[in-house]
Simulated assay, not measured.
Amino acid sequence: MASIEIFGQDGHVLIDQNYKNLILLEKFKGSFDGGGGVVRGGTYTVSRSAYPGTTPVLAISSTFLTALRRFTRNGNDYTWVIACEAAGRLSSADFYIFNVPNAIPSADGILQIFNSGGELVFDSSLDYCKVQGMLSASTGQSNTLAVPVGGEYAYVVTIPPYIYSVTNFLIMNFTGVVMQSGSVRSASFDYSVQGYPAQPPFLSGRINWAAKFLIIDVANI
């Protein structure tokens, strides 16, 4: 048994010496542009290195629809290419990167909890990932998750449902996520790139018919 355990109102252990949670590593703004031949929508690329043996999590908060277009990993280097609807072109969104580091950094919080090996497992001054709920999404449909009015929320990036076709354009219809007052909504948007010299028969298809987006509370971080 841990030397200290913190329980919630439901009687479940919230924090003990085995506690692990995603920690905010970075918050920043990014502006979507129309480079790379994009003719409808916009693109923003995030590239970061991670702690060895860990996987970072990217979350986005925006007032326009966004979705993951491409994700790549090379060793400990991660790259997310994010697409947005036409209304977001030349506009900015808030980005958050979370991770569970191999060693929890001390932030000199009022409350710190250590395990039996003397390792820090919790610091009250760190910004932890706080889950608000789950938003379901599917191709061609709009879904909504109600959230408290006045809060600040973001969604964790995952592979979205989308439809694509390739001619002399790459045309993609993503199901993305947007933050609204009192709700987080998923809906479809068009994104297209010119300069694809495809020849008949042209390609088309549907990827990932449905998905679930983790919605997190990012107020005061």
Rank of each mutant, 00 (worst) to 15 (best):
S165E: 14
P160G: 01
F169Y: 15
E152H: 11
G151V: 04
V149Q: 12
Y153R: 05
P161Q: 13
L145D: 12
T144V: 14
G150N: 08
N143P: 07
V177S: 08
G195R: 12
G182H: 01
T175F: 03
V177G: 04
I159S: 11
Q199W: 13
S186E: 14
E152Q: 14
G150Q: 06
S181Y: 00
Q180N: 15
T144M: 14
A187F: 10
F169K: 14
M172G: 00
M179I: 14
S188L: 09
N143F: 15
Q194H: 14
V184F: 01
N173L: 09
G176W: 05
Q194W: 13
P201V: 07
Y196L: 05
S188H: 07
T167W: 06
M172P: 03
F189Y: 09
Y155M: 03
Y191P: 03
E152M: 10
V177C: 09
N168L: 08
A198G: 13
I163Q: 15
P161V: 08
G195I: 05
P201N: 09
P197D: 03
Y191D: 00
L170N: 06
D190F: 04
V178R: 14
P148Y: 01
P148G: 08
F169P: 00
E152W: 01
A198F: 14
Q194K: 15
P161Y: 11
T167Q: 09
G195M: 07
F174C: 03
R185P: 01
M172W: 00
R185S: 04
V166T: 09
G150M: 10
G150A: 07
F189N: 06
R185Y: 01
S186Y: 13
Y153K: 04
Y196T: 07
F174W: 02
S186A: 12
T167P: 00
V166F: 15
Y162K: 11
A154E: 15
N173Y: 05
I163A: 12
P160S: 02
G150C: 09
E152K: 13
E152V: 05
G182A: 04
V157E: 08
V157S: 02
I159P: 10
V166E: 09
Q199I: 10
I159K: 14
V166P: 01
I163N: 14
R185I: 08
F189H: 04
D190V: 03
V178L: 07
L170I: 13
D190Y: 01
G150Y: 06
S183P: 13
R185F: 02
G182S: 06
V156F: 03
L170E: 00
S183K: 14
A154M: 11
N173C: 05
N143M: 15
R185L: 09
V166N: 06
S165C: 06
V149D: 06
F169R: 14
T144Q: 15
V156S: 02
T167I: 09
V193C: 04
V147R: 02
P160A: 03
F189V: 05
V147I: 12
N168H: 15
M172Y: 06
T158P: 06
V156E: 10
P197F: 02
Q180H: 11
G176F: 02
G195E: 02
V184M: 10
P160N: 04
G150V: 07
P148C: 11
D190W: 01
L170G: 01
P160Q: 04
P161W: 13
N168F: 10
M172R: 15
V178Y: 00
V177Y: 10
Q199F: 12
P201K: 10
A187L: 07
